[in-house]
């Protein structure tokens, strides 16, 4: 392994240890388990629909609301909005930024670690939900619906982590209030604007993530139209195009971050932009 790759791996390992220390993993674990438990409760206690295929709608609906639209934004927000600021506030950034590893590579290593962990947490949460939903039906978990429902959502979740993670990391570089700004952005843009039809919705990442998540849902359900109507999503774009759009947004945000991190001075008392 080359010196720089090894150094980046060391930074990533430090970042992972930092994120996995303290109460953070417990909070996220509790959230993911809570969501999975919700899946169990809904499947167990919801009145049986006339058409058994409606259970599939419910499954998709829950994945959409609980994971893609909520945890899918919150988890990367928590992990990436303070990527540099957390170390700066704790006084440990100086150890990384006075080393012979370019600052953009330090940032990139941290971003990859944070993004990887966020994607893993989301995927584990969705899997736990899948199992809980099956258990709620009184059946043992099976592979049914995995390829048509679960996997597209896992892929959309990972893409969401890339897109949102890169955006929140960039905002977090510019201001101390990255997390709160991320919450406002997440709510206004990704939950409110994403539900406004036509052009407005196309300006949000959520539109493209939904397109990926629902790309194969019709293969597993009896009525694609019904699913789409239920979700209010009528103008999905092809999954490949959607994924590419998200990746381009993520790429631009990462590039902007790399430029910013090499220009901003993260030391001293007053040069760091206050709140």
């Amino acid at each position: 392994m080359s010196g720089q790759a090894g150094a980046m791996l060391a930074v990533a390992e430090l970042e992972l240890r930092r994120m996995l220390g303290g109460p953070r993993p417990w909070v996220l674990g509790a959230l993911a388990l809570g969501v999975a438990a919700l899946g169990f409760v809904v499947r167990r206690f919801a009145p049986a629909p006339d058409d058994p295929a409606a259970w599939g709608f419910l499954y998709v609906l829950l994945l959409m609301f609980l994971f893609l639209q909520t945890l899918g934004i919150l988890v990367p927000l928590l992990h990436t909005s303070g990527l540099v600021r957390d170390d700066l506030e704790e006084g440990t950034l100086v150890y990384l930024f006075t080393r012979p590893l370019p600052k953009p590579l330090v940032f990139l290593a941290k971003l990859l670690a944070a993004g990887g962990l966020s994607a893993a947490i989301l995927a584990a949460g969705m899997l736990a939900f899948h199992v809980a939903f099956a258990l709620g039906a009184g059946a043992s978990p099976s592979g049914a619906g995995v390829t048509t429902h679960l996997l597209p959502f896992v892929a959309a979740g990972a893409l969401g982590v890339a897109g949102y993670g890169a955006l929140f990391a960039f905002v977090g570089l510019l201001t101390r209030r990255g997390l709160v700004l991320g919450i406002v952005y997440g709510f206004v843009s990704e939950l409110v604007l994403a539900n406004i039809p036509a052009v407005v919705r196309q300006l949000t990442l959520m539109h493209y993530l939904r397109s990926v998540a629902l790309s194969r849902v019709a293969d597993g359900l009896s009525s694609e139209e019904e699913v789409r109507e239920l979700l209010g999503v009528l103008d999905l774009v092809p999954a490949g195009q959607a994924a590419l759009t998200v990746l381009v947004v993520a790429g631009v945000a990462v590039l902007a971050s790399l430029v910013a991190v090499s220009r901003i001075e993260f030391a001293g008392e007053q040069q760091v932009e206050g709140d």
Binding site: G3, G6, E13, Y95, L96, R99
Partner: peptide, 11 residues
């Protein structure tokens, strides 16, 4: 050790 690795030393 971690900071040695960040400085480019092998593990």
């Amino acid at each position: 050790t971690a900071l040695g690795r960040v400085s480019g030393l092998p593990r």
